[in-house]
Each structure stands twice: as structure tokens, then as C-alpha cells.
Design a protein around this nucleic acid. Structure first.
Length: 219
DNA sequence: ATGTCGATTTGCT
DNA sequence: GCAAATCGACATA
């Protein structure tokens, strides 16, 4: 895959959503909206593995108006409104009809930082600008009305800029905000770049051994 | 430094 | 009505 190019559909159409979650680290999310061009390097992701995943919106094969995009073809953005205010962006993966997705949880801002700050009403730049999925949506100018946008178009896309995160810098651990999902809340489906200041604070920080280097697939 | 609470759409009971 | 893949304002310590 040549550097500085939009990720092609083949990137998203692979079957292993956990692998895709890790591969997205170090890639650049780019948006071109009416108020400007912004980009940032992805430093934190979460995988949602489909209808057997209790933390996923599609758990139990739940088809709703909201989840339609997740069931659609890969390489599209699933953007939904959370808690009535936060616009959260996921990347739909696997094949048409298999509702797997990766939530983009944090970015390291790259281009258009002033525009991001304006969108978020921030006067000073700090690591809260793009830390957390709601913040990512705000900074990148995402809106749930853009749900279903194709990631190979010219509005929202992800680029490979030749940056590779070494495997030993990729950490994984439990997802955030899904405690209702019972045992699935503990699955290590969240991935992040070790030490990056834009990564979410881990609520389970007390026990560092809860994080592991390799993901385990649910049976 | 830590805790509570409001914002406000979607989907389920 | 209520909880949700959340965040930031504000209170208290």
C-alpha cells in the first residue's frame, strides 16, 4: 500500500475486525467540511465484533434504523448520536451483512488544528481536543446526518501516511463505557498507542495487569 | 483531585 | 420513562 493514499475498500473488507482496529493506529482520519480541512493520527480504537457482542448496538442481530449502516457494505462511516449530543464515528468492516465496526476513540491532531479548536470552542490547545470519541466527532466536524458516508470519497476518509506503530507500542485492554455488557465489557477490544497523551484515561488503571499485548477472540 | 449532574436522540419496556 | 459505545461545567475537599 503506497504512502499518503486513501485506504482502499480492501482494507475495510477484511474479516478480522480486531486486526483492523490495530491496523488503524497510526493512520490519519481526514475530513473536508464546509468550514475547513482537518486531520489527525488515530491513536485509540475499539472493536465491535457483531451480533454476539453484548456491547454492540447490533447485539442479538438488532436491525434498527440507526444500525442499518453497520449491516451495510464495509468502508463506510457509521456515525451515531450518543447521549443526545456526541457524534461518534465508527468504520464499518467485514462484508455486507456482517455488522462489524471499529470506533475511533482518539486522534493526535495534525492539520487544521485552529479549525478543530473553533469547532470545540477551545481557546488553548491541550490533549482534550481529540481525546475520547465524542471529542473526535466534535473536532473533525462530524455529524450523525453524515452516517453512511463512504470512506473512499472526498468528505471523510482515512489515509496511510507511511507511519507504522511497532507492535510493542500497541496496547490493548477493556473497552470504555460498556459496563452494561456484562462479561463482554471485559474483553480486550480497545487498542491504543502506548504513552500517547491523546489516549483516554483508563478507568481500570489500578490494575495494569488487566491490559494485555494480544487480543483474545471470543468463542 | 474527585464527585455529581445536565445535555438531549434513539431505542426498548 | 429510562438508559445509553460521553464530556465538561461546576461543586466540594
Amino acid at each position: 500500500m503506497k504512502p499518503n493514499s486513501k485506504l482502499p475498500l480492501e482494507f475495510y473488507s477484511r474479516e478480522d475486525v480486531l486486526q483492523i482496529s490495530q491496523d488503524l493506529l497510526g493512520k490519519f482520519l481526514v475530513t473536508k467540511m464546509e468550514d475547513g480541512y482537518t486531520s489527525g493520527m488515530i491513536v485509540e480504537t475499539e472493536a465491535y465484533t457483531g451480533i454476539s457482542d453484548k456491547a454492540a448496538h447490533v447485539y442479538g442481530d438488532k436491525h434498527t434504523k440507526r444500525t442499518a449502516t453497520m449491516y451495510g457494505p464495509p468502508g463506510h462511516a457509521y456515525i451515531y448520536l450518543c447521549y443526545g449530543i456526541h457524534h461518534m464515528m465508527n468504520v464499518v468492516t467485514n462484508r455486507n451483512g456482517v455488522p462489524n465496526a471499529v470506533l475511533i476513540r482518539a486522534l493526535e491532531p495534525a492539520e487544521g488544528i485552529k479549525i478543530m479548536m473553533a469547532r470545540r470552542s477551545k481557546k488553548i490547545l491541550d490533549n482534550t481536543l481529540t481525546r475520547g470519541p465524542g471529542s473526535v466527532g466534535g473536532a473533525m466536524g462530524l455529524n450523525y446526518h453524515q452516517d453512511g458516508t463512504i470512506l473512499t470519497g472526498n468528505k471523510i476518509w482515512i489515509e496511510d501516511r507511511g507511519i507504522v506503530i511497532p507492535a510493542d507500542q500497541i496496547q490493548c485492554g477493556p473497552r470504555i463505557g460498556v459496563s452494561y455488557a456484562q462479561e463482554d465489557a471485559l474483553l480486550p477490544y480497545r487498542f491504543w498507542v502506548d504513552g500517547n497523551p491523546y489516549v483516554s484515561k483508563n478507568p481500570h488503571k489500578k490494575d495494569p495487569k488487566k491490559t494485555r499485548k494480544t487480543a483474545i477472540r471470543k468463542g
